[in-house]
């Protein structure tokens, strides 16, 4: 695809976020192309998670706007943003610990099918065969099918993350945000997750991924933005970013 026919699905337009005198984000401009995986990297405290929180509506920006597919996300509530097709995997797994693994994956499917609010009181959960089948299928994809009846709270951290991924995928989001999807995982689990994310990519889903692990970033990213001190210091293709002296400097001068 040549750069002239780029199909940009998410614009981050001149976003600033200040906490008192602290500039957590300044002059952030991003354009995310449809179907691509865009990685955001940078040293600790660079503002990566803040940026993700601004996109999903958890934190309002001090200035600027986020536009997804022609719709301004800024000022919308988290559930409204999700209903537009934006799903998110959290840095620490955000799940329903008291529900079974299967139920965890079924719940978001109802939001996708029925919208933000619909009462099905006289219908049986067991008769929701479509949603159940899809949830079981996704659990098989992430390797948790055998544990579908376990309490989600009893899963290991890595399993929780994979389950959370299935919870996002069942919504068929147009944009998936992943906040350090492999943090705290063993090398083996990390590789499994990379393979899984590659499989999703083949389905044409747009992804923004925040990651510390450079192995993960360079395995998956089509494009990389480097954040430092709340600003984008470098943006480009993985090969361009890899050798950039500014990036080296940011990491060496940072917390590491």
């Amino acid at each position: 695809m040549s750069t002239t026919e780029r199909n940009v699905v998410l614009h981050v337009d001149d976003v600033h976020k200040n906490y008192g005198g602290l500039h957590a984000l300044s002059d952030i401009d991003l354009e995310i192309e449809e179907g691509k995986t865009h990685a955001i990297i940078g040293p600790n405290g660079a503002g990566k998670s803040t940026l993700l929180n601004v996109i999903v509506g958890r934190i309002p920006p001090s200035k600027g706007a986020v536009v997804f597919d022609g719709q301004v996300l800024t000022g919308k509530k988290p559930h409204e943003i999700n209903q537009l097709g934006v799903a998110r995997v959290f840095q620490t797994p955000e799940i329903f610990p008291e529900l079974s693994v299967l139920q965890n994956v079924m719940v978001p499917a109802f939001a996708k099918r029925d919208g933000a609010f619909k009462v099905h009181m006289m219908r049986l959960l067991d008769s929701e065969a479509g949603i159940r089948e899809e949830a079981e299928h996704l659990l098989a994809d992430v390797g948790l099918h055998e544990r579908r009846d376990t309490h989600a709270g009893a899963l290991s951290r890595g399993d929780k993350r994979r389950m959370e991924l299935a919870m996002c995928l069942i919504q068929h989001p147009r944009l998936l945000l992943l906040d350090e999807p492999t943090a705290g995982m063993s090398r083996h689990d990390t590789n499994t997750t990379i393979e899984l994310l590659k499989k999703i990519k083949a389905r044409g889903m747009t992804k923004i991924i925040i990651e510390h692990d450079m192995h993960v970033v360079f395995s998956l990213a089509d494009r990389i933005s480097v954040l430092a001190g709340g600003r984008v210091i470098v943006e480009g293709l993985p090969d361009e970013v890899r050798g950039n002296p500014k990036v080296q400097e940011a990491y060496l001068g940072g917390a590491h």
Binding site: P78, N82, F96, Q103, V107, A116, F117
Partner: peptide
């Protein structure tokens, strides 16, 4: 099931569109 999910993690419900 939705009500139980609210009890379990109300925040998460918001981020998944409820």
């Amino acid at each position: 099931l939705m009500l139980r999910a609210i009890k379990s993690n109300q925040n998460r419900m918001g981020y998944m569109g409820f």
